Amino acid sequence: MKISAYFLAALCSGALLLSSCNRDQAADTTTTDTAAADTMAAGMDHSAMDHSAMGHAATDAANPSPLLVAMNDMMAKMEAVKMKGNADHDFANHMLQHHKGAVAMADLELRDGKDATMRRMAEKIKADQLKEISELQAAAERLDRAPANYKPQDPSDPFASKMKALMTSMMQNMPAPATDPDLNFNQLMTVHHQSAVDMAQAELAHGTDTRLKEMTQKMLTQQQKEIQQFKAWYAKKAPAKAVSAAYTCPMNCEGSASTKPGDCPKCGMALVKKS
């Protein structure tokens, strides 16, 4: 069937007009659609955990915290782990991604942080977890053909429910972003370590591999100790750091506190000096 040149020209013209009208709307929705697609993909690989509806910790799109971005990236990779139904195997693969997130966060603290104590902790965490990453990779490969011993798609399964609960808790307990990188590292790594403790306890309760459980117990002891160190530092340093933030948004936007004048990263209003 022949189509007239006039009809083709009109059709192209209409398509261009429609594209122009929708361009702004598409730009606004691209980020949301991409995030939804990522979550959907994670849900397909990780549907047993039903994390697709959880979402990740919110970031300020105009000025996201690099540490929070690293934490979100880690959670997305944990969600994407394909569950095989063996508690030891699935724990090793989840903790592997968890450790990689800790290393990325430690690197950011070493790049941006100034506090000597937080930098020392970042150095130790990075060294410890790089070593454990190699051990977890070896364990995951060794356990790749291990028989199933739990039901990842059953929400009432004890191991599956604990893994889901710890991911939910990690997301829900995200602290408000801080302008101070040391404070940000302290708060986010405290949440990060607590989720590792919860995961380790699930493995110790339901895992069966002796070698992996021995390594898990060491992780648990070390990270509980570091949580207490993070909390002790926070108790001493956080009030002083809060006082040093002399400027804030008149609309009280979260994460707007600053040590110098400027504009609020959320609403754009000029920061005002605290009275």
Rank of each mutant, 00 (worst) to 15 (best):
residue 104 A to F: 08
residue 240 A to R: 11
residue 120 R to E: 14
residue 250 P to N: 12
residue 239 P to D: 12
residue 243 V to Q: 05
residue 136 L to V: 09
residue 147 P to R: 07
residue 239 P to Q: 09
residue 5 A to M: 11
residue 161 S to F: 04
residue 54 M to W: 05
residue 187 Q to S: 13
residue 3 I to R: 13
residue 38 D to A: 10
residue 230 F to A: 12
residue 141 E to F: 07
residue 125 I to Q: 12
residue 86 N to W: 12
residue 66 P to Q: 00
residue 2 K to N: 03
residue 171 M to H: 09
residue 244 S to M: 06
residue 270 A to V: 13
residue 127 A to R: 10
residue 158 P to M: 04
residue 136 L to M: 15
residue 93 N to V: 08
residue 190 T to A: 11
residue 186 N to W: 03
residue 111 R to L: 12
residue 169 S to E: 14
residue 91 F to A: 02
residue 212 L to R: 04
residue 123 E to A: 10
residue 83 M to Q: 13
residue 88 D to E: 03
residue 62 A to N: 14
residue 9 A to F: 10
residue 49 M to H: 02
residue 152 P to A: 13
residue 172 Q to G: 03
residue 211 R to G: 14
residue 259 T to E: 05
residue 261 P to K: 07
residue 178 A to V: 09
residue 14 G to N: 12
residue 234 Y to T: 05
residue 27 A to N: 11
residue 81 V to L: 06
residue 262 G to N: 05
residue 251 M to F: 02
residue 160 A to E: 11
residue 83 M to P: 00
residue 52 S to M: 13
residue 32 T to F: 15
residue 85 G to S: 03
residue 238 A to P: 00
residue 4 S to F: 09
residue 104 A to M: 06
residue 84 K to F: 05
residue 42 A to S: 10
residue 123 E to G: 07
residue 18 L to Q: 15
residue 119 R to T: 00
residue 71 M to F: 10
residue 249 C to T: 08
residue 133 I to P: 00
residue 143 L to K: 05
residue 31 T to N: 08
residue 27 A to C: 06
residue 206 H to F: 04
residue 18 L to P: 11
residue 216 T to Q: 02
residue 142 R to Y: 06
residue 159 F to L: 06
residue 268 G to D: 14
residue 5 A to N: 09
residue 131 K to D: 12
residue 15 A to E: 11
residue 263 D to A: 15
residue 55 G to R: 02
residue 210 T to I: 10
residue 33 D to W: 13
residue 165 A to P: 00
residue 189 M to E: 13
residue 242 A to D: 15
residue 47 S to M: 14
residue 23 R to H: 13
residue 201 Q to T: 03
residue 256 S to W: 06
residue 163 M to H: 04
residue 248 T to W: 09
residue 121 M to G: 04
residue 218 K to P: 01
residue 84 K to P: 01
residue 30 T to H: 07
residue 238 A to R: 12
residue 139 A to N: 13
residue 49 M to F: 09
residue 201 Q to P: 07
residue 227 I to E: 13
residue 98 H to Y: 11
residue 218 K to T: 03
residue 54 M to P: 01
residue 75 M to L: 15
residue 35 A to S: 06
residue 60 D to C: 09
residue 89 H to C: 05
residue 22 N to M: 12
residue 273 K to I: 11
residue 274 K to V: 13
residue 29 T to P: 00
residue 128 D to Y: 02
residue 39 T to P: 00
residue 13 S to T: 14
residue 91 F to Q: 01
residue 203 E to K: 02
residue 148 A to W: 01
residue 94 H to I: 13
residue 197 V to T: 02
residue 255 G to E: 14
residue 121 M to P: 00
residue 164 K to S: 11
residue 47 S to I: 08
residue 155 P to D: 03
residue 28 D to S: 10
residue 270 A to K: 15
residue 216 T to H: 00
residue 210 T to E: 10
residue 101 G to K: 07
residue 167 M to D: 11
residue 61 A to N: 05
residue 21 C to M: 13
residue 235 A to D: 06
residue 267 C to P: 01
